[in-house]
Design a protein around this nucleic acid. Sequence first.
DNA 1: TAGTATGTTCGGTATGTTCCGAACAAACCG
DNA 2: CGGTTTGTTCGGAACATACCGAACATACTA
Lengths: 149, 149
Amino acid sequence: MANANELIDDIGFHLERLGLSRTSGRVIGALMLASDATADAPTLTEQLGVAKSSLSAAVALLERYGLVQRMPGASRRERYRLTEGLFESVFFSKQGELGAFADLAERVLDQGDLAPEAQARVERMRDFYRFLLAEYPRLLERWEESRRS
Amino acid sequence: MANANELIDDIGFHLERLGLSRTSGRVIGALMLASDATADAPTLTEQLGVAKSSLSAAVALLERYGLVQRMPGASRRERYRLTEGLFESVFFSKQGELGAFADLAERVLDQGDLAPEAQARVERMRDFYRFLLAEYPRLLERWEESRRS
DNA sequence: TAGTATGTTCGGTATGTTCCGAACAAACCG
DNA sequence: CGGTTTGTTCGGAACATACCGAACATACTA
């Protein structure tokens, strides 16, 4: 049985693929393993062995991405909570990227006078991303449904 | 109407999000706009204004990713071709990543003795990625079908 | 109010990545 | 064969980024 730190590092390492820094990923890992999905800053710096400045930057990033929230509280000591449905929101936030690619294709079609073959290629690219964009909500519905059962 | 170079840069810029280098992205862009989706190396270095060493590295990367193929030919001068169905294969190649996340969750469940709430959270993560993994082939089928009409 | 705890900002350092040009290897051509 | 074209490998420069520690600002507490 691995200790918590190894698991946290494992999670953090994998989360780098999503464009997070190592430290941000490890913060997510620590929160994942915490029973109530929360922790405060001093505990995290201690547990992860990072400077508080690094933690501050990491949490700021996670907050911008909507993956972690600051918990309102009376105390000066801040508490952070993992966003509910974290991985779902990470996945479905890629819709923006899909839209960007569809727009890119559209822009190329608008601005360029392409050879017919090239035009067909770009149209197919556009159609594919439009297709995905249309399918994502359906995917989400299906997931919600499968969770209920 | 924008000139081809601007379009290539636009495509290249967006393709960096998929983890490609700028130069690799611009190679894809140039091939996208070429009528037959091919080009040879000297033309590309000239058109993109990069050193041939950079082009060599970029093409090697694209080949490893399966996005570009070397065309068999008699001449020493190599010709590169965009892989058919490029964007589809880019998208569906993410299945590997989904699997990695499912495995990660499984590993955490196996190795850690978690608080019940944490365990539920990790199980949900695992189930979500398994769900996506199962849905992807279905998505592909639907796209194929929608293309036929 | 003085002192302590908490979090952010800033400058410097270490690390990794991308690109270029030079050196090299191999194929083609006169 | 000798010279040229083509592509790869290698070393180094430029750049970006993450992290740390110090300085700072603000809120709590005695």
